[in-house]
Design a protein around this nucleic acid. Structure first.
Lengths: 120, 120
DNA sequence: ACACATGTACGATGGATGTCGAAAGAGAGG
DNA sequence: CCTCTCTTTCGACATCCATCGTACATGTGT
């Protein structure tokens, strides 16, 4: 018997107090997920299919689950679309300054001073 | 022919400008490595075998390599011992405030407000 | 009702990862 | 020289992980 009667499995999110730092770090250590989080940081809410990533839809779903279960994003359903938001307040309440510091670090240039441009 | 003539393979460390944030986050997302970094944050330098971790020596070596190649630690040899230090200046120069923020976040209690002590 | 769009679930797959035990190199000390 | 300690390398192994294709569930619009 197909237990597919409830495909949208109620989207379990961890409580704010239950967010684990190591899970957060692991979630952020993937380039695709980092792109998702950075995009979300710039825009408040976004539909799943509108992220500037270059992976298959099913892969995107996987990354969303990792981010969701780590407590980084929240997803809500609206009709056929699934909207995603960053859990900014929860994150910042639990780990003050962490997200901004990490995102700022990601923007840090690889070459702080490199006017020569020579690969040598 | 045994290529074991040079067991101490010169301990390659990345340059400060080449430290990759995603590698750093991944390195920190392991509990054993997080313990190593936290211990190093409290003490300036430590020998390999003196970390409060509960893994086999070979596993410890593996974690040290991950941390070293991510640019988090620096290792130098002194006789038979290998001393390990955190690359605080390099890290903070490249990603200002990152390490302290992450370590502070790790100290964050799971229950933000709980002076009552009741699990209720 | 039908087709289409959006997104998920499932299964497979190749690669990375954490873990260990056994063997060995390098230095210190007898 | 021999032994002991510290640490590494190697090989093995089980697990996790990112990725994809295919099939399907749900909603929208005609």
């Amino acid at each position: 018997m197909p237990r597919t009667q409830r495909r949208r499995a109620a989207l379990v999110h961890p409580e704010a107090e239950e967010i684990d730092l190591l899970d957060v770090l692991h979630a952020l250590s993937d380039p695709t997920r980092m792109t998702i989080v950075r995009t979300l940081r710039a825009e408040p809410e976004r539909a799943c299919g509108t992220f500037p990533v270059d992976v298959a839809p099913s892969t995107l779903t996987h990354h969303f689950r990792v981010l969701r279960e780590a407590g980084l994003i929240r997803q809500r359903e609206d009709g056929n679309r699934r909207w995603t938001t960053l859990r900014l307040e929860d994150l910042d309440g639990r780990f003050p300054g962490l997200l901004d510091t990490v995102l700022a670090a990601y923007e840090a240039p690889a070459k702080p001073v490199g006017p020569e441009g020579g690969v040598t």
